[in-house]
């Protein structure tokens, strides 16, 4: 009985690991697909339509000094690599 229970546990544990891995893979897949779909569509925005895009709040960085410090803290407190925020530009203010 004990043996059966421990086997069940190990099966459950491996199931959980497999489910977590599958969940992680799905998150990556959904995020990548959404990004590719978003980046793949849409028409050119004319210069006279960029008023809102040119607002400072739409810039790549709204507070470069503060965001540099945030990145500084993230670099020390998160084990992951920071992929960066954007390619820059887009707002018409570069």
């Amino acid at each position: 009985m004990t043996f059966v229970r421990s086997t069940d546990r190990s099966v459950c544990a491996s199931d959980r690991v497999a489910r977590r891995a599958a969940f992680g893979a799905r998150v990556w897949l959904v995020a990548s697909s959404a990004a590719v779909l978003a980046l793949g569509g849409c028409a050119t925005v004319q210069p006279w339509e960029r008023e809102l895009l040119a607002h400072p709040a739409m810039a790549e960085s709204t507070d470069p000094e503060g965001e540099a410090f945030d990145a500084h803290v993230r670099g020390a407190h998160e084990a992951g690599l920071d992929p960066g925020a954007s390619g820059g530009g887009g707002c018409g203010c570069n």
Partner: peptide, 24 residues
């Protein structure tokens, strides 16, 4: 040694999308 690729696209007069990949 690290490399990164970042891509931003203006989707509409109100939306911008960003995608970034990095390796190290």
């Amino acid at each position: 040694v690290g490399a990164s690729l970042a891509w931003s696209r203006v989707l509409s007069p109100r939306w911008i999308a960003d995608l970034a990949l990095a390796g190290e």
